[in-house]
Design a protein around this nucleic acid. Structure first.
Length: 425
RNA sequence: GGAGAGGUGGCUGAGUGGUCGAAAGCGAACGACUCGAAAUCGUUUAAUAGGUAACUAUUCGUGGGUUCGAAUCCCACCCUCUCCGCCA
């Protein structure tokens, strides 16, 4: 959520900042609404003040004389009644305006950071660095071919259970999934992250608080009988964990790691990545999340990214770091570093983690503050996958494939998985 | 799901129409006493929004309503607790 005051006082700068995303944003209408709303706020409070004084003097008058039928009293009450009617009229206007303003501002994305590369779309993203040697060989199998031959997951049977884009992990596949979750959480908790295991169902307010609503309602699954949705990422419940709080600044930064199943409708992606573990309606993810002092979020962004990277390094998976351009930034983010893992079968890097600095965008939506220098200040929030489990498994299968059909398990994962190779059961 | 009870400041808890933003206690801060501390005594101490400030408004679960005036009355919703039912 952008600052309403900024929109009211400096609409031009708001438009300029938003236009960095490569689209035109017209905010003159919201601007007018915020100005009107401010006028009404002031008017209401001045009438309330008069009305309050009047009520007190009526109280005093009744206290002094026992007679309730004085003409003076009647006149005062009449005057009070006028105030009341006026106030309720104005409040009605205020409510409508507030809703309009809120609706419009809720649909505006965050400002891109000045440091983000300027660009229109994905093709303008900037590769910052690569790590490890991409595995290139003839006769490379895709992870779904490997999965099928090792019998570690089954998508055909899963359509009987649910529909397409769902997966059932089988035997060692399920075991590998659990090993990855535990390995990642252990690594991060050793690094001072506090583990959370939040609800998978979240209410509308929570989705709004982190930016998924109102604009992206078609991206999430809704439970029709309740005001509950299947959470698309742990970012949602973690943000909501501190909703409407004023946090003691001594506790900052708050660093959380959470495993959660994630549910996404993937509307509009029909035909893309239909095979394997890359794009599913349900997948597991370990998420990293920081609430921090606004002056320290740039630094925190570097740190959360390197914490996510450390998993790829420990698993010895080749990857690259990409600086997302202004036109390709997510709705809530002002700067995003993507980590992309090498998938040899498709000879390309695929996103496995997205590390974003949302500045005060989510904390303003969710009202999460800390008293810093005697002022209540919206905190900065940062999130990053550390990592997406299914895609990590795909990368391990493809990068670790052996000529005999087995898969080498990364050394760091062996204690969790329980053996050095993944073979046919 | 059924029956009942309840949601008040950092905490406990009083308050059923009029200086109530709210008694009392605990806690906290400061001061006195003390070499220092404990104990004791005294003073102070809710939050939010707007404003440089004086100040103004709002807030007693949330949202409406009645009234000149609502923590207090009415309606709806949310949450918590107890019992019963169901259940991993």
């Amino acid at each position: 959520m952008l600052d309403q005051k900024l929109i009211r006082e400096n609409p031009t700068s708001v438009e300029e900042n938003l236009s960095l995303r490569g689209k035109v944003y017209k905010i003159s209408h919201v601007h007018e609404l915020t100005v009107k709303k401010k006028e009404i706020d002031i008017e209401i409070s001045s009438i309330q003040s008069k009305s309050k004084q009047l009520s007190k003097s009526i109280g005093n008058l009744i206290g002094k004389s026992q007679n309730n039928n004085l003409k003076e009293l009647k006149d005062l009450k009449k005057k009070g009644n006028e105030y009341r009617i006026k106030i309720s009229e104005l409040e009605e206007k205020q409510r409508i305006l507030e809703k309009e303003v809120d609706d419009e501002i809720s649909n505006l994305p965050n400002f891109p950071s000045k440091d983000a590369p300027i660009g229109k779309d994905e093709s303008d993203n900037v590769q910052v660095k690569t790590w490890g040697d991409p595995f290139k060989k003839e006769n490379i199998k895709s992870h779904w071919e490997i999965g099928e031959s090792l019998n570690i997951f089954d998508s055909v049977k899963s359509t009987k259970i649910s529909k397409s884009r769902f997966i059932t992990l089988v035997g060692n596949g399920a075991r590998l999934e659990r090993a990855l979750i535990n390995f990642m959480i252990d690594t991060h908790t050793k690094n001072d992250y506090l583990e959370l295991m939040p609800p998978a169902l979240v209410n509308s307010e929570s989705l709004k608080g982190s930016g998924q609503l109102p604009k992206f309602s078609s991206e999430s699954f809704k439970c029709s009988n309740d005001d509950l949705w299947l959470s698309p990422t742990a970012e949602v419940p973690i943000t909501a964990f501190h909703k409407n709080e004023i946090i003691d600044p001594k506790q900052l930064p708050l660093k959380y790691v959470a495993y959660s199943p994630c549910f996404r409708r993937e509307a509009g992606s029909y035909g893309r990545d239909t095979k394997g573990l890359i794009r599913l309606h349900q997948f597991n993810k370990v998420e990293l999340y920081w609430f921090c002092d606004p002056s320290k979020s740039t630094e925190a962004h570097e740190k959360i990214t390197s914490d996510a990277e450390s998993i790829l390094k420990k698993l010895n998976l080749p990857y690259r770091l990409v600086d997302i351009c202004t036109g390709d930034l997510g709705f809530s983010s002002s700067r995003t570093f993507d980590l992309e893992v090498w998938l040899p079968s498709s000879k390309c890097y695929r996103e496995i983690s997205s590390c974003s600095n949302c500045l005060d965008f989510q904390s303003r939506r969710s009202s999460i503050r800390a008293k810093i220098d005697k002022k209540n200040t919206y905190l900065h929030t940062l999130n990053g996958s550390g990592l997406a489990i299914g895609r990590t498994m795909a990368a391990i299968l493809e990068n670790g494939q052996q000529t005999d059909g087995s898969v080498k398990i990364p050394d760091a994962l062996v204690p969790y998985f329980g053996s050095k190779f993944l073979k046919t059961a």
